[in-house]
Nucleic acid binder design. Sequence first.
DNA 1: TTCTAATCGAGACGGTACGTCCCGTCTTGCC
DNA 2: GGCAAGACGGGACGTACCGTCTCGATTAGAA
Lengths: 206, 206, 206, 206
Amino acid sequence: MAAKRKIDRPVSGGAVLRERVTAAITDAALGELADVGYARMSMEAVARRAGVGKAALYRRWPSKQAMITELVRSKITETLPHIPATGDLHSDLRGLLAAYHSHLANPLVALIGADLLAESRRDSTLADMLQTEVAAPRRQAARCVLQGAIDHGELPPTLDLKLATDLLIAPLAFRTLILDERSDDEYLETLTAATLAALKAAVRQP
Amino acid sequence: MAAKRKIDRPVSGGAVLRERVTAAITDAALGELADVGYARMSMEAVARRAGVGKAALYRRWPSKQAMITELVRSKITETLPHIPATGDLHSDLRGLLAAYHSHLANPLVALIGADLLAESRRDSTLADMLQTEVAAPRRQAARCVLQGAIDHGELPPTLDLKLATDLLIAPLAFRTLILDERSDDEYLETLTAATLAALKAAVRQP
Amino acid sequence: MAAKRKIDRPVSGGAVLRERVTAAITDAALGELADVGYARMSMEAVARRAGVGKAALYRRWPSKQAMITELVRSKITETLPHIPATGDLHSDLRGLLAAYHSHLANPLVALIGADLLAESRRDSTLADMLQTEVAAPRRQAARCVLQGAIDHGELPPTLDLKLATDLLIAPLAFRTLILDERSDDEYLETLTAATLAALKAAVRQP
Amino acid sequence: MAAKRKIDRPVSGGAVLRERVTAAITDAALGELADVGYARMSMEAVARRAGVGKAALYRRWPSKQAMITELVRSKITETLPHIPATGDLHSDLRGLLAAYHSHLANPLVALIGADLLAESRRDSTLADMLQTEVAAPRRQAARCVLQGAIDHGELPPTLDLKLATDLLIAPLAFRTLILDERSDDEYLETLTAATLAALKAAVRQP
DNA sequence: TTCTAATCGAGACGGTACGTCCCGTCTTGCC
DNA sequence: GGCAAGACGGGACGTACCGTCTCGATTAGAA
């Protein structure tokens, strides 16, 4: 998913970024990212670890920033879990939380997530990427489940969708990304019940 | 709050870190922090801005990391809001959320919070500090309110305290620190209602 | 002779380029120069060899070019030999040639001289430096001896001074710098005689 | 004169270095040489200028060094002037100096000569090439004229041939290659006279 | 009041990383 | 197999900070 340049045929002959090198760099970069974190990661170290010249990195990405952004985006989105929609609110909710949980449990997501969120305050490109590639799909899935429940009469039509979405995602994300604590099945079960109750009360006040 | 060394009796001579210098550095550092952010802040720039030699910084803190950590810690804790305990669960809850909100609305907290949380994954000293200095007092306040409600019979004794604490803090923290969105009074009001409902359902399943 | 900055007292305290570091760099640079030549010399190698950071080099000289120029200038001029002037043309001539010879026999001069002359075609700063610091004094010495001989009637007043100067310096310089051959006493003796004869004939044609 | 490989019968197929490409490279290289000089010339620039792949260069020469050396060698030798031998020492001498002069006046010789001489101190292959291809023919011509003069009795049989050769070539070479100054007819005329006198005195001392 | 030792501003020190350029080699697909 | 294009590993460029160290000059507590 990396290397975007040089994919269309040049006049003749020409050289193309080599797959194996791209793979080696990607592996090395993700490894470094996990080892030392976003801020302390150095391009030189990545190149060294990949057994590659620095130029090979800069041929693929214009900067350290861009490389990490792209790498993480593809890693995160490729692990985006499927979200079910059975129609029953409680089981949909449970499914949604299970999907979030399994995604957040990915070691890379947990390790890098906090770094990215911190960095995204300063880098609007990164912020936009996270918004459209990561947050939007989740929000969409949540909204889908909520709308279904409203249509079935399980949730009131006065539901504050914005707040409801926050309520759905926040506790698990907060616990995993910020408190760095694991959540077991029992936790998820109780959380589902509590979230269900919260949603029913999340209506705009008269 | 800075300068920890040299506080006990020197052998002789005048050799105490000077207050004015410490203050100048602190101001400059917070200024830089606000201007360029955690990652891009340089000690050189802080020293330059404070009109101070770099050594004056390293005489006070062992590293850039430590300096920022300590500055932010003191800024964060000094703004820790008072938390009321009237006995009425709904109004206590509202008060608690208002207190969290006003604290998180502090620009410095919002700016630096995410950085510190990210960094704390790799720096257990920082993690411990945040845990004891920031998280613990909040958790304690929450627990206090919750226990009162249980004693008054407003919440069931089977309440999962761990989960309940997460439910109390997570939505607001997530929204502010991670989504970087403001919350108005109306939002807080609805959130209070929803949280109240969630808490009542946050009991361990039979 | 290196380090020209920071020699006058700043407002207070301040830091000064350290003598030992300058010496280490100078040695290392001259060593590299002798080993790999002007063109192939690298600042990194010099820094490595001197056990010094690259910044220490760039604190002293603005560029590789400038460093080499200055270093060589000082090395060459510091070995500039004393030139006698007895009044007797033959012995003055012999002395002059001996002085040139001993200077050109300096291994560094011999090794670097050709590099510098080549480079000076492209670098007018270097060319000017060589002209004023190296060539001019020699030319002056030669002119002095020649003028004395004219005054004594040993050389005709119609002597072409420009040509005569070339005749004095060229054979030895050419032989040493370009042919890279040594010259012994016997050679110098014969050369003196031949040069004397040449000078007497070096008059502008009628 | 370039391309030495693949000049004899290829086994099959069309696999001979193409003349047009060689010519384009040669032109481009000489152009770059003139534009930016020996040291700053880059193979990439030559390839670009010739509209040619870098491989085409390295198929013909093993290195930048080798390419320049060979190009310049061929340019220098192809401009080697004819040297007359009338029997009259003065006019032969004048002819010799005129030939040297016209050769050295070739802009390429002047531009590259000093570089090559400098480089030849560290590259014995280059030194040998210059010796056999450039210096030897000139020395031979000089020796020829000198021997003729000895045979005719115009020069003493005790003439120091080595020194005499130096005396013949040095002033002009020095002036052109090192001082980078032009020489006009009048200069050459006077130089001839002076050189003639010098030669007559260039006998080994008793 | 004098002594005296640690602090001060300034910035040099050995390092590491940045992103760029070129070297000489290697790879790809067209002719 | 030569060719144009250009990716490859390597290494140097000159800059910016890191955290440490070195200067005199300043300053304030102990004598």
